[in-house]
C-alpha cells in the first residue's frame, strides 16, 4: 500500500523528518506516537502534499506510484485521505456543495459517473448519521461554527464518503470528549475491511483503546525510534517518552 523510504522533509527551514522509513501493507493500522515536535503531523502533511512542507530526500510509493510527484488533488483522487488536526472553517462555502464536488472528483477519477443531487443527498445523510452529525450541518458553511468535536466528525464523514485506500488521522483525538472519541473510532472501525490501511497519529494511548493498531511506531527526532505491537502504546503510556532519549535512540 505505502512504502516510505528514507524520507526527509523540512518546514520553514527546519529539518523535521530525517530519513524516515516505513512500510504499510493493505488492511493494516499503524499508530504513530511520539513527543511533541517529533514530526508526527509533518509526516501526514507531507504525504498529503501540503504547501510549505519541503521534501529534501527519499521517496514514497503509494500503490506502486510515486506519491510525491503528484499534485495535492491527484493524491486525494488516488485514495489518500488526511483527516486534519485542525479542520479549516470556510464560511460561505456550503458543506454540501463541497462534499459533492469531492465525491464527484473521486468518482470521475475511478471512471464512474457523477452522482445526481438526489443520490448524493441520500449518501450524505447516511454518512452524517453514521458519525452522529445532525443533517443541518450539511447545509452550513464548511466547518463554520462547528465545535471541535463536530469538526472531527465532519472529517470522518468525509472519509466515509470518499472511501480512501489510505486514511491518515492526524491527532483526530485531540480535543475530543469520550463520546465523540467513540463515534470517531466507530466510524474508523467500520471502514476496516482488510484492504484499507490507516495511519493513526496520536499523542495519547487512549484512542488506541478504540482503534486497535497492528503496529505502533514511536517517532523521535524525525525518524522511527522504535516499533512494536499494540503493547508498545501501553508501555509509552506508562513510562512517557523521556526514556527513549535516555536510551539514546
Amino acid at each position: 500500500m505505502l512504502e516510505i523510504r528514507n524520507l526527509s522533509a523540512r518546514v520553514e527551514g527546519n529539518d523535521i523528518l530525517r530519513q524516515l522509513t516505513l512500510s504499510i501493507r493493505p488492511g493494516e493500522v499503524h499508530a504513530i506516537m511520539g513527543p511533541n515536535g517529533a514530526g508526527k503531523s509533518t509526516l501526514g502533511n507531507v504525504l498529503a502534499g501540503r504547501p510549505g512542507y519541503e521534501v529534501t530526500g527519499g521517496e514514497v510509493l503509494f500503490q506502486g506510484k510515486d506519491l510525491l510527484a503528484m499534485e495535492i488533488e491527484e493524491r486525494a483522487r488516488e485514495g489518500v485521505f488526511l483527516a486534519f488536526q485542525y479542520p479549516v472553517e470556510i464560511p460561505g462555502v456550503s458543506n454540501m456543495e463541497f462534499l459533492k464536488a469531492a465525491v464527484d472528483a473521486r468518482r470521475r477519477h475511478r471512471g464512474e459517473s457523477e452522482l445526481s443531487s438526489f443520490d448524493f443527498m441520500k449518501l450524505a445523510r447516511d454518512a452524517a448519521k453514521r458519525v452522529s452529525l445532525d443533517q443541518a450541518f450539511l447545509k452550513r458553511g464548511v466547518n463554520e461554527g462547528f465545535s471541535g468535536g463536530e469538526k472531527k466528525r465532519n472529517e470522518i464523514m468525509q472519509m466515509l464518503l470518499l472511501e480512501p485506500s489510505l486514511c491518515i488521522l492526524d491527532e483526530t483525538d485531540s480535543g475530543l470528549d469520550i463520546d465523540a472519541l467513540q463515534v470517531v473510532a466507530a466510524g474508523v472501525n467500520a471502514m476496516r475491511d482488510g484492504q484499507r490501511s490507516f495511519i493513526v497519529v496520536t499523542h495519547y494511548q487512549r484512542l488506541l483503546d478504540y482503534i486497535v493498531p497492528d503496529h505502533v511506531h514511536v517517532l523521535a527526532a524525525g525518524r522511527i525510534a522504535r516499533s512494536g505491537g499494540k503493547e508498545l502504546a501501553l508501555e509509552l503510556e506508562a513510562r512517557g517518552y523521556s526514556w527513549l532519549e535516555d536510551e539514546g535512540v
Partner: peptide, 25 residues
C-alpha cells in the same frame, strides 16, 4: 485551498469555490 484540494478538488475548482464563498456570506 489546501483543505479543498486535499479532498480531490482541482486548484481551479477550489479557488472558484473560495472566491464565491467570500461573497456568498
Amino acid at each position: 485551498q489546501f483543505y479543498l484540494r486535499s479532498r480531490g478538488l482541482s486548484e481551479t475548482q477550489a479557488r472558484s469555490m473560495l472566491s464565491f464563498g467570500f461573497i456568498n456570506e
